[in-house]
Design a protein around this nucleic acid. Structure first.
Length: 500
DNA sequence: CGTCTTTGACCCGCGC
DNA sequence: GCGCGGGTCAAAGACG
């Protein structure tokens, strides 16, 4: 599933984005140049034309310079992201080893009390657990989408997010459901480019269905690990939502419905229809205890570009899945047998409403967004990432994960309106490269508060703009992120709103 | 008429 | 080997 630190739109797109402003500048400059020729009839006219020409050239030069600067900034962000990414996995490894060392003594300790169902679920906190859907791992649909997902990582990551903008109706509904509404998720790891997203940890997901179905007898020792990797990571999201499905920006087609054991509410099965052979599926089921809670489980990676509105969700779930797979793939069968403590989970980085289950045939991470934030959260309510950021070393928070938080925070329906993509990228990128994450969180927190108060659609409140301006002027990294965001947005043709 | 949803049947993995 | 349950297929119906 979406996973791992998503590396969606790497450099290619960013470069494209870079190129556009330049093109635009050329476009505006050239007409001036050409128009000058026909009108050169008098000396005065000629001089004027020359002056205009000079001015245009100067302008072009400036634009080029600016372009170079943007490129430099971009590469800096990317390299910073990489180092963070590396650091993140180091931390994961360390915690994992620590967890392994402890397991023999106290198998699945803290979680024991929490686990009330067959799946060994490690609850890191406070949320209710989802009815951990188990996946049997068989997939008949052989769509070969896998091929697109298995390609190598290009070493680029998307530092930003799209907006979590729900489509009209759903957005309204989400609003109606209260502050906890509408987190967005996305499952596709690659929000922007097909097939360039697979990372090592994600490879398991990227495996074509066929490979995932290994004969049980084949696995032994090391093969177990392979089998684990072959399992599909899934991300389950619990949200208060009155609509039949959670608005996540993607297009889905329902292909089945079943009454599952232990829950009177039927479970609906959806398939992504944005692209013909997209392997992404989702299951939607209402919580038995509280039918206002919608449990959406995503599985698979999109093999196509996602609509802007879907990228935020994708970032969130892919980050969650990344953590999941990075933990499960390297764990020993023994540890899996007792439920696995994800390093980040153990470190508290998953926040108060995240649960992980790896004992099932299919590792699942649950993001419970229906529960108010824990008291220790200094940020806005129900933001697990905010809690993580507040209570732990922010350096340990993977950029994509943080992006997910941001996406979630931004999610409140259509708040972002037209300029939200820029904001999404802004925060995502800022976090990835900023040495002062608290500042970013602060700004985001502010945004969240603002959005919950005003709940406005469309335009960004002036106060928000002010906050952003302050942040930008006080933090170079932030500025860098903004530039990247704007560049990115412009690259997609949505630049007008982001342009200064 | 094309697209989407519904729904019963079927397939497959897993536990006993 | 059998039954159960989850997941998917595909025909039929609904809808715009």
């Amino acid at each position: 599933m979406e996973v791992a630190v998503e590396r969606p739109t790497p450099v290619k797109e960013e470069k494209r984005a870079d190129a556009k402003p330049e093109m635009a500048a050329l476009g505006s400059a050239l007409p001036i140049v050409f128009e000058s020729f026909p009108s050169t009839q008098s000396d005065a006219g000629i001089k004027q034309e020359q002056r205009t020409l000079e001015a245009a050239k100067a302008e072009m030069g400036e634009v080029r310079e600016e372009n170079e600067r943007l490129k430099t900034m971009l590469s800096r962000i990317v390299s910073q992201y990489h180092s963070l990414h590396a650091h993140f996995f180091d931390v994961v490894k360390v915690h994992e080893q620590a967890a392994k060392a402890k397991l023999p003594i106290a198998p699945a300790p803290a979680s024991a009390a929490d686990v009330d169902d067959p799946d060994d679920l490690v609850s890191l906190s406070l949320g209710k657990r989802s009815n951990g859907a188990r996946r049997k791992g068989h997939e008949r649909s052989s769509s070969s989408s896998g091929t697109a997902e298995t390609t190598a990582d290009e070493g680029q990551l998307s530092l930003g997010l799209g907006i979590a903008r729900g489509s009209g109706l759903s957005a309204d509904d989400d609003k109606a459901s209260g502050a906890s509404a509408a987190p967005v998720l996305n499952l596709s790891s690659d929000s922007s480019s097909a097939g360039d997203t697979a990372k090592p940890a994600q490879d398991a997901d990227a495996c074509p269905p066929g490979t995932a179905r290994k004969s049980p007898s084949a696995g032994e020792g090391a093969d177990d690990e392979v089998q684990q990797q072959a399992k599909k990571a899934r991300v389950s999201v619990r949200v208060k939502c009155n609509t039949p499905t959670m608005p996540d920006g993607c297009q889905w087609r329902k292909y089945g419905q079943k009454i599952s054991k232990g829950n009177p509410c039927p479970r609906a099965y959806y398939r992504c229809t944005v692209a013909p052979h997209c392997p992404v599926r989702k299951q939607v089921q209402r919580c038995a205890e509280d039918t206002s809670i919608l449990i959406t489980t995503y599985e698979g990676q999109h093999n196509h570009q996602l609509p802007p509105a879907a990228t935020a969700m994708a970032s969130t779930t892919s980050a969650a899945a990344a953590m999941l797979t990075s933990g499960s793939t390297s764990s020993s069968p023994a540890s899996l047998a007792h439920g696995h403590h994800l390093p980040l989970a153990a470190a508290g980085l998953l926040g108060p409403t995240t649960m992980v289950s790896t004992a099932a045939s299919c590792p699942t991470i649950t993001l419970d967004l229906t529960i108010p934030a824990a008291p220790h959260s200094l940020m806005h309510s129900s933001s697990y990432a905010a809690a993580a950021a507040a209570g732990y070393d922010s350096k340990a928070v993977p950029a994509a994960w943080s992006s997910g938080y941001l996406a979630y925070g931004a999610a409140p329906p259509s708040y972002y309106g037209k300029s939200s993509p820029a904001l999404g990228h802004l925060f995502g990128g800022g976090l990835g490269g900023s040495s002062r994450p608290e500042q970013l969180y602060g700004a985001q927190s502010y945004l969240q508060r603002t959005s919950s108060l005003g709940g406005g659609h469309g335009a960004v409140a002036p106060a928000v703009t002010d906050t952003l301006a302050k942040a930008i002027t006080s933090d170079p990294s932030f500025q860098t992120a903004l530039v990247a965001a704007i560049t990115s947005v412009m690259g997609r043709g949505g630049g007008a709103a982001a342009q200064k």
